[in-house]
Design a protein around this nucleic acid. Structure first.
Lengths: 144, 144
DNA sequence: CTCCGTGCAAAGCATTTGCATGATG
DNA sequence: CATCATGCAAATGCTTTGCACGGAG
């Protein structure tokens, strides 16, 4: 287990933010779903399932806060809503099937290399990136 | 000039879609803005500037149509709206400054290679991808 | 006591849909 | 002239904001 809640709570506190029960619950859910980027609505539902109570507004605000301090990443599946995943320091990239919606994760990555070259070439200081691939999974290829 | 409107209109017609004046205007605008992914609203404004009349709904529908037949790409800048750019066959990737919003384009790309390996490893058939980098441009780095 | 965080309700936008009208091949 | 495309208005859905209440230090 390379993700600990303590590590993240430290990060939150060190920035002067309080670790409220709501923030803790949301963090736990994100850690539990580390392989599955959740929408704010998805986080909200999981909160209910775990028998806790957190307002949807708070979910939105917390996710944005966590993103700002680098605890979660922002991901897009082109389906009209934002998704968030815990940032464990490894690159996460996704394969999204345009037919069945299946999502596969891959951590194959040339991005580090690409990022370094880009930073040198452009003098940009890169802090985040977002990469998703879209296409058809092996089953949907057959079904067409 | 490596982008011709005829090339795209052929693509549209060959799929059984009609080439209406509205679609033509939108195509022209996308070609004119090939270095600058536009939001549907942005396309709509450009239409007005060029003294044409196209409903916003039609803009949405046309962009989605063009995306489906591979004429435009879908891009995300994490700012709450979709963006579209003409697909000239070259990879387009972006550097988005989180401070001033400046967007730079780069076509440095390991994605082709990455895509081939991914397809082999996962049996996914990849048809699109979306890659953006976020960070701070050289000016905003100094201003902080 | 002062802040910061929360949660409700309402507002704000981007996007989609229903439907009657209009244009195209 | 049948079909597909358009455009308005309304609906939808995700996200943000205003504001009063509540809790921690």
């Amino acid at each position: 287990m390379d993700i600990s809640i303590d590590e993240f709570t430290r990060k939150i506190r060190s920035r002067g933010y309080k670790l409220t029960p709501q923030r803790r619950v949301i963090l736990e859910i994100l850690i539990k779903n580390k392989d599955n980027p959740l929408t704010p609505e998805g986080v909200y539902k999981q909160v209910k399932i775990s028998c806790s109570e957190v307002g949807l507004t708070t979910v939105y605000r917390t996710l944005e806060l966590l993103r700002k301090i680098g605890v979660v990443n922002h991901v897009h599946f082109h389906d009209g809503c934002d998704r968030y995943e815990i940032n464990d320091g490894k690159p996460h990239h996704y394969l999204i099937c345009l037919n069945c919606g299946k999502v596969e994760r891959t951590n194959l990555c040339f991005i580090d290399k690409m990022q370094k070259i880009l930073e040198k070439d452009t003098a940009f200081k890169i802090t985040e990136h977002c990469l998703s691939f879209f296409g058809y999974c092996r089953f949907c290829q057959l079904r067409k």
